[in-house]
Design a protein around this nucleic acid. Structure first.
Length: 424
RNA sequence: GGAGGGGUGGCAGAGCGGACGAAUGCAACGGUCUUGAAAACCGUCGUGCGCGCAAGCGUACCGGGGGUUCGAAUCCCUCCCCCUCCGCCA
């Protein structure tokens, strides 16, 4: 959500953002409604004042004055009620419109309608050149009995999986690796509820758009989060933190659920795009300062790069275009790891910067050095998500005999083993 | 799932239909005193919205929403959260 005063003062910039982000929203209608609400609020408050004065007099009035005062006060009350209903409706409508106003994309980000306009920033690491017939990750899983995807599908449908044996241990090793990594960089480790109320999803900006990609637990008015960000972002809602408490830094661990409603038929093979996964998510809420926010963005990105580098995965960094980055974001850069079987890079990390867009929706505030209450700036990035990361990990580190080399940084987490192979 | 008890300012805790945006204590902040600190004393000390250069004024908020009333922190309804006991359970 943008500051309404900012919208009023900069309608041109907001309209440009609406276009760049491809949002369906009539800003002029929003501004007109805002004006209407303002006038109506003024009228209602004036009437309330009148009623308050009369009521106050009633309390200390003599018996013969009382009747008259009550009568006049009652008349004012009736007029208030007549205005309150339409006012409430207009305020609710305005609020819904405000929730749909996108953030202003950063001036340096590529402008374009979709991923075609994304810009590659850099490539790091050498793509492996196999001297043998390389297997894709599903073949490797089957070869070593590391997963049962077929039977998992019988239980829960497509995009389900069941990791087995050493691969389950490897998955857990990756979680532990990511938790240690983030903790060493002063993130507070925290597990997050996988389910949350609607308000939390509105807070991050996942709602009101994007409802179709979220599992709904209708009986209980809860939804399954697709990322720990949903919970993390609401952790300090409705509080006013001290500037000394900032930045707030969490590494949130949680199971994640996505319906993948918009991806029908895409990436159905294997572990790349599944309904249920696990993620360690980096989350930062810092003071309302664009330079500081930019520094945290760099840091979150650097952490992501350090993690894939430690896993010895070739990757690239891309800047998402305005049409691809999501309504709430100032900018989003992705880290994509090389998938040999697909001969392309695929997203494993996504860094996002919001300024105060999420904080206004979530009511995340702090008192600055001058004592002024301000909204925080929020950012997030993946630290590590499994099982997706297993895809590049297995495929890039496979050897001619089908065994998989364990990258140095991970060995401490798998009992010192240098390779993974079939159970004997 | 059943029975009961609670949610008031940063914290503790009064208030239970009008003079209550809310006593009191603690914490915090500013000041006096002091070589410095502590103590003591004086003062300040919630948020949103509207108007205003500002001081300030108005309005709303005592878990959320709705209602009764001339008037609600106080009464009613409903939802949420916390606590205790019973049941079930990893």
């Amino acid at each position: 959500m943008l500051d309404i005063d900012f919208i009023v003062a900069n309608p041109g910039a907001v309209k440009a953002a609406i276009e760049a982000k491809q949002v369906d929203l009539d800003l002029d209608a929003l501004l007109a409604l805002h004006e209407e609400v303002k006038v109506l609020v003024g009228e209602v408050e004036e009437l309330r004042h009148e009623r308050n004065v009369l009521s106050k007099q009633t309390g200390s009035a003599s018996a013969d004055e009382r009747g008259d005062l009550i009568e006049r006060s009652r008349a004012v009350g009736t007029r208030i009620k007549e205005l309150e209903t339409p006012l409430r409706e207009k305020q609710e409508t305005l609020q819904l419109l405000l929730l749909r106003v996108p953030n202003i994309p950063g001036a340096d980000e590529p402008v374009g309608p979709d991923e075609e306009s994304n810009v590659e920033l850099r490539r790091v690491g050498d793509v492996p050149m196999f001297s043998f017939a390389a297997r894709d990750h599903v073949d490797l899983l089957e070869m070593h009995d590391w997963a049962d995807i077929g039977r998992a599908g019988k239980i829960a449908g497509s995009r389900s999986y069941a990791l087995k044996g050493d691969l389950l241990l490897l998955e857990m090793a990756l979680w532990r690796f990511a938790l240690d990594f983030t903790q060493q960089r002063d993130f507070t480790l925290i597990s997050m509820p996988a389910m949350a109320r609607e308000a939390a999803f509105v807070g991050t900006g996942h709602f009101p758009h994007g409802q179709e990609d979220v599992y709904r637990l209708g009986e209980d008015d809860l939804y399954l989060s697709g990322t720990a960000e949903v919970g993390l972002n609401s952790l300090h809602s409705e509080e006013i933190l001290s500037v000394a408490d900032l930045p707030v830094r969490y590494a949130g661990f949680s199971p994640c659920f996505r319906r993948e409603a918009g991806a029908a038929g895409r990436d159905v093979r294997g572990l790349l795009r599944v309904h249920q996964f696990f993620k360690v998510e980096q989350y930062v809420a810092c003071a309302a300062d664009k330079d500081e926010s930019a520094r945290w963005f760099d840091m979150l990105l650097a952490n992501g790069e350090a993690i894939v580098s430690a896993l010895e995965l070739p990757y690239r960094v891309i800047r998402l275009s305005t049409g691809d980055m999501g309504a709430g974001k100032v900018r989003t850069w992705d880290i994509e790891c090389w998938i040999p079987s697909q001969e392309q890079y695929r997203e494993t990390h996504s860094v996002s910067e919001y300024y105060d867009w999420q904080a206004r929706r979530t009511d995340l505030r702090y008192r600055d050095a001058e004592g002024k209450v301000r909204h925080m700036f929020t950012l997030n990035n993946t630290a590590l998500a499994t099982p997706r990361i297993l895809v590049p990990l297995l495929e890039n580190h496979q050897q001619a005999d089908g065994t998989v080399r364990v990258p140095e940084a991970l060995r401490a987490y798998v009992g010192g083993r240098e390779t993974l192979s079939s159970p004997s």
